[in-house]
Amino acid sequence: MSQILDLFQYPFMQRALLVGLLLSIVCSILSVFVVLRRMAFVGHGISHAAFGGIAFALLVGWTPAWGAAISCLLAGFFIAWFGHSKRISEDSAIGLALTITMALGSIFIALRQSYTPDIYGYLFGNILLIGQEDLFLIITICFLNIVLLAFFFQAFYSISFHEELAWVDGLPIHKLRFLLISMLALLIVVSVKLIGVVLISAFLLIPGLTACQLSSRINWIFLLACCIGSSSVFFGLIISAIYDLPSGAVIVVLQFICFILALIFQKISASRGLP
């Protein structure tokens, strides 16, 4: 116990907890839309694009976050555009975006003369990577996302339910779709260090998915998703710090356990005939 309390003395741990909880709440809210709009793999495609961008940034000596932001937004628009044009199906567009950015990323890493020790951290998350300068960026992006969510909540809810109906109601569905994907992309960029490229899509999926198993009331779903997201981050960070494990991986495992428990709970309540 004292070991855990000692952990909170370290600035890196305080930083990680602060950004972790903040990110988990925003990611969890978005994850509900991701589940309702059935776009789990959109997040997957965008997050892998971050790898290509980070590798490029490391090669040319930029701040990795900028490389990630550019590649994530590009991948997001690529996927959204194909999803809209219907010439190529959305899953094919995701497959293309995901693999080409990973391929380019590996080439950039290979081209880099010096050894790249931090790349594993970018793939699976490493709280030690989060510096003071990230703090400002993460808080800004989270704040921006919360403002946009508050403003566009109903519009997102409506396009998630039925895009064609939302269109007839007068909602600008294409712009809203691009906006949602841009929000996801920016959130992914700032989550990379905490969760890692490979695992972010779980972060943007499991809280929402788990909450949807537990309730069919939309307000409850958002609340439950936030609880699941933030508690898994809190305990995940502590466990990862104590046992020196990759933070993202531990968090995702905890979220998966929540999901399994929710499934069991749902089965039990269904067999008892509870609503």
């Binding site: 309702l36 109903q154 519009a155 809810y157 409506s158 998630s160 339910f161 109906l165 939302a166 007839v168 109601d169 007068g170 909602l171 949807c212 309730s215 069919s216 009331r217 939309i218 779903i221």
Partner: peptide, 15 residues
């Protein structure tokens, strides 16, 4: 989709 009858109707008024 997690929504109620009245929510669906109210969505029709968003425009």
């Amino acid at each position: 989709f997690p929504t109620t009858a009245i929510d669906v109707v109210c969505m029709g008024r968003y425009g």
